[in-house]
Amino acid sequence: MTNSKFTAGVIPEMQRKYIHKLASQGTRVDGRNFDEIRKLTITKGYIPRAEGSALVNLGDTRVLVGVKIEPGTPFPDTPNMGILTTNAELAPLASPTFEPGPPGEEAIELARVVDRGIREGHAVDLEKLVIEEGEKVWVVFIDIHVLDYDGNLFDAAGYGALAALTNAIVPASRYELGDDFSLPVQHYPVPVTFAKIGNWIVADPNLDEESIASARLTVTTSEEGHINAMQKGLCGTFTYEEVQKVINMSMNIGAKVREIILGDSNVKED
């Protein structure tokens, strides 16, 4: 997912030196501060055919998330809860390094990290999605479609998933199960991802930064300032102090991102 066959070897080494040099001067390839994320715009309801949707632009990374909702059978161990399932597709149009075919480990990790934030943060009140206890519940499908990959898919997909859930309508009337109603969203867990570059830590890495990062850490926090999910990636390491710092930065940045996700400034298309 990081190094393309065409840039492996010499170019990453030059890139590494360049990005390290910038970091030592306190700046980044696109001029951001270390704790600054790229411009985030979210268009809710982009796909009216879907029950909920959001198009996310995080810098040049573009992800479309759609939510479909249909009746299904509950899991035997949770007869009084609806079902949430998350899937991610790295469409080949998004990057020369993405290939067609069944989801690889990157797509699976992406879907599972987004899922973990939404699930453990109890974003959706699944107990309100029961049609008939033990027999029939609403199944919420979150599908993440990556359209343009310029780094940090975890956050773009996480913001898109939350935004799509907040504007989703349960299509009860379509199945003659009463009136349509808004999907009950009760919490707003927001992921923020950081990359370790040399001894520096930067928020929302773009593709250049991601391709030379030694380690990555995603921390999902709630509006109450609790931590709901974490995922470390890549083969570098973090110290305990770095993890503490990352968690604190994630809470600060997450609060600002939450306002954007919940804001009314988004384009609503009917």
């Binding site: 973990r116 609790h226 931590i227 999910a229 974490m230 995922q231 470390k232 390491t237 305990y240």
Partner: peptide
């Protein structure tokens, strides 16, 4: 720390 994951609900 070489691997770090977390799920659930915890304060800092």
């Amino acid at each position: 720390i070489a691997l770090l994951q977390m799920d659930g609900d915890m304060t800092y």
